[in-house]
């Protein structure tokens, strides 16, 4: 098997006294998109947020077990969390552009990385916007406020911002849940283009979306991983009855 990007083994997670994940084992493969699905409270977002240690920002959380990024323990004391989040970017449920121009939204992370020359910035920004399928819509108004964009455009801007710093992995937490069907379709198309260059992990409430955009699907229920397999298998012949009931809409 190709070298996994993430190797997750016997992962347990607690919010205070409440356990949210139980002995989860998942492997994330490179240049594929992996979807986490399951009913609310199943732990899918918690697991996603473990992958770039976003849960560190929440007090009284505790993690046990193993998550390795290319073999290196993610929770090892020597890990630089800022560096980690550069390698593992994230796009959130609600688009959250900075109240700045379109240009500056993307330039922000690049400047922190030390890209300062005007030409370099312009090139990298154009490349990111093109990859996010937004360039044609905004190329004539890069200095306009990002807040003036539509919801779908804002979300693609956030994707452009995330990929501008050239992460290896892109985590997406229900990236379409606030979007209309047309904007959703655009993001879904984008995901399939992006995985040529990035490894994608997406959490979605919408299992049809998981079917459309992912290569592998993990189904969670009550903090446990019920089934993890190639998406085709999950949606045509799942091994587990609970998975079948969920994907056929009979439960959850």
């Amino acid at each position: 098997m190709d070298n996994p990007v993430f190797h997750i083994e016997k992962l347990n997670f607690w919010y205070g006294a409440k356990q949210a994940l139980f002995d989860v084992d998942v492997t994330i493969r490179p240049n594929q998109s992996t979807a986490f699905i399951g009913p609310s409270g199943c732990g899918k977002t918690t697991l996603l947020r473990c992958l770039n240690r976003m849960n560190d920002l929440i007090e009284r959380t505790r993690v046990e077990g193993k998550i390795a990024l290319h073999g290196q323990g993610l929770y090892a004391p020597e890990v630089d969390v800022i560096e980690l989040r550069k390698r593992v970017g994230m796009v959130f449920q609600k688009s959250n552009p900075f109240p700045k121009s379109i240009f500056d939204n993307i330039a922000y992370g690049l400047r922190i990385q030390g890209v300062n020359s005007k030409n370099d910035l312009a090139d990298r920004i154009e490349a990111s916007l093109r990859k996010a399928a937004l360039w044609d819509e905004v190329k004539d108004r890069l200095n306009d406020s990002a807040m003036a964009l539509s919801g779908g455009q804002q979300q693609r801007l956030c994707i452009a911002r995330a990929i501008a710093v050239e992460p290896e992995v892109l985590l997406m937490d229900e990236p379409c849940s606030a979007l209309d069907p047309v904007a959703t379709a655009k993001i879904e198309e984008l995901i399939q283009d992006l995985k040529k260059e990035f490894t994608i992990v997406i959490v979605t409430h919408n299992m049809q979306q998981a079917a459309r955009v992912s290569d592998h699907t993990a189904f969670f229920y009550l903090g446990k991983l019920v089934e993890f397999d190639v998406t085709t298998k999950i949606f045509t012949n799942p091994a587990n009855k609970q998975t079948e009931d969920y994907v056929t809409g009979r439960f959850g």
Binding site: Q208, A211, R212, T232, F235, T236
Partner: peptide, 9 residues
């Protein structure tokens, strides 16, 4: 065909 029906609705 079965895969496209299952995955692409």
């Amino acid at each position: 065909g079965v895969q496209l029906i299952a995955l692409r609705q």
